[in-house]
Design a protein around this nucleic acid. Structure first.
Lengths: 329, 329
DNA sequence: TCGGTTTATGGAATCGATACCACATTTATC
DNA sequence: GATAAATGTGGTATCGATTCCATAAACCGA
């Protein structure tokens, strides 16, 4: 492996000079510069970024913590982040918590010890330990999707999105609307979306039966199971619509309903949230909400970059969303 | 930021001893060990991995080069890689070439200078510069999806998969089979799959018309456009089936055909490759080929890890696949 | 021609860890 | 009880870059 010293020796200069050439900094004569550049090319020398990072306390890497690596949401967000940071020659170090809370905290420490210059977290929950860990890490930090106290956060407007979907169902004459959600440890997806639904139902004085409320785990299969429970448990009082907090669970629910011979949306309407590719191509096309995940990633990256350059006050940004009306309602 | 020196001072020992505790290496007395561990916990000290990596020449990071970050294939592969490497406490450094050939090479150099311990490349093309760059990087290296000379590669059996799909169509009495492919700069997807199709047609003495062969760019939209061209240009001689080399293009083609009032598979049958989630939930469900991408990622990671521990001869592994017969043929 | 910039280069310290060697003390072995 | 082996700890060099300071030649206006 060639190092800066090798180059220096070969060029008959000090390594300081080589460093100056490499970083375009300070005075270097034309002929020395050319000589060095030529050697760099010939030897294929690339500076050791560990050494550089050790000295400069900057790594050029930003850490991204994902709840699950292979989801459409995650990959869209990452794509947005990447688009922004790669322009400034930053790399992304990816970690995957597999929905494990402790790992979130573990990774924050890990990323810190890897000298990342900043962290973006796709959060799935809020807890004291987590905010504590973020505080002690003392790094530029952005959270996407959850409103973490003391942390600049990019938020989806879960409450209003859910309310809008519910309202839209109501405007289609639905009065008996069921709900497939997720656990409330996830304050955004599990909490706010449910509130949006419940409040809207209440405002419209529509009764809700316990059997209509089911809780899944984000997966298509769990959507299927929840729909089954809803149908089985409320035989005498079937809902005419089901609001699912994610597209995938909505797809699962549709699958079950179709198997059972229900026609969508005639017998039962369905809507989801997420605007997955899937939602567009199922039949009937799924009514859903576009959260502009990629844009959230871009925004997060921009904020992070800004925060890295200059300490900024913590802020909250609520993203807009778009209701996509299709055929399932 | 606390360093190993701070801990050493506080514990009244040398930093050598602290290092020994941290790495569980060499002799340390119980009481010193406890004292140090306690301090580590109290201060929240995490060792600088840049320093460590500078000294040890190992970074605990493996680089992954993707053609496009937000695709189902990529995220499945990454998920597989992650599953394996995270068990051994490696992290993934992700890079995204955005289908840009030069970036592939640039990233190899970049990852090298970041001291990654190995690289996994989801290759989309083969060229001299690329194999050259891999050679000079001189790092443990695995390619997925393309047979790179001199590089351990995990390959999908594109030729036989395509032949199988074509044969299956033929066994359903199709004689006029069209083809939607991609450019042959991608030897696997563009080259081998096409060969599989062409050879199978030839073996069965089935004629192919030029208008039946179209080339897209992996996107759903391009599938749509290709289908349009096929239908428009061969009005007098419509195919009864279209084989698409990717699911997404198949979905696009289906969309166009549906718009035009064709019934699938009665009027025209369709099949893809990739076993995307999408393929399962479109109507009619798409016949496709499962390439076990996640498994490919796992395998790649295992091979890479093995290669990192011990120099291994370069090998080629051809993965198996599974034809998934659904309703679109 | 003289003092002051500007240009050009090198030397030494430093970042935070690990590795190797040296040395002292205990413990085991015959 | 002498010698060998195991245990415990510290000192110093080192990894490959950057940074700061020193030095010197070239240039320049008065």
């Amino acid at each position: 492996m060639t190092t800066i010293n090798d180059i220096a020796k070969m060029a008959n200069v000090s390594r300081t000079t080589v460093s100056r050439v490499l970083n375009n900094k300070g005075y270097v004569s034309e002929d020395v510069r050319d000589r060095i550049l030529k050697l760099v090319k010939e030897t294929g020398y690339t500076p050791s970024l560990s050494a550089k990072s050790l000295r400069t306390k900057k790594s050029g890497v930003i850490g991204v913590i994902l709840p699950k690596i292979s989801t459409e949401t995650a990959s869209r967000v990452v794509s947005g982040i990447n688009e922004v940071v790669s322009k400034e020659d930053y790399q992304i170090l990816l970690t995957d918590t597999e929905l494990n809370k402790e790992k979130e905290i573990e990774f924050i420490r890990l990323l810190k010890s890897r000298q990342v210059d900043g962290i973006i977290l796709l959060a799935t929950n809020i807890n004291e330990d987590l905010t504590q860990a973020i505080q002690t890490a003392d790094l530029p930090f952005i959270s996407i999707g959850q409103d973490l106290p003391g942390v600049t956060s990019i938020l989806y407007d879960d409450y209003h999105a859910a309310a809008d979907v519910t309202n839209m169902m109501i405007s289609h004459q639905h009065k008996k609307i069921a709900y497939i959600g997720v656990g409330e440890q996830d304050p955004s997806v599990g909490g706010l979306r449910k509130e949006g639904y419940l409040d809207t139902m209440a405002k419209n004085e529509l009764p809700i039966h316990n059997e209509w409320i089911q809780e899944g785990d984000f997966s298509i299969e769990s959507g299927y199971e929840c729909a089954k429970k809803i149908i089985k448990n409320s035989a005498s009082n079937l809902p005419t619509a089901i609001f699912c907090v994610t597209d995938r669970m909505a797809i699962g629910a549709m699958e079950y309903l179709r198997e059972q011979g229900f026609s969508i949306p005639k017998d039962i309407a369905i809507a989801g949230i997420g605007a997955s590719t899937l939602s567009k191509y199922v039949t009937p096309a799924l009514t859903t909400v576009d959260y502009f995940n990629k844009h959230a990633g871009e925004k997060a990256a921009q904020l992070l970059l800004a925060q890295m350059k200059k300490k900024k006050p913590k802020e909250k940004f609520v993203q807009s969303y778009r209701l996509i009306k299709r055929d399932s309602v």
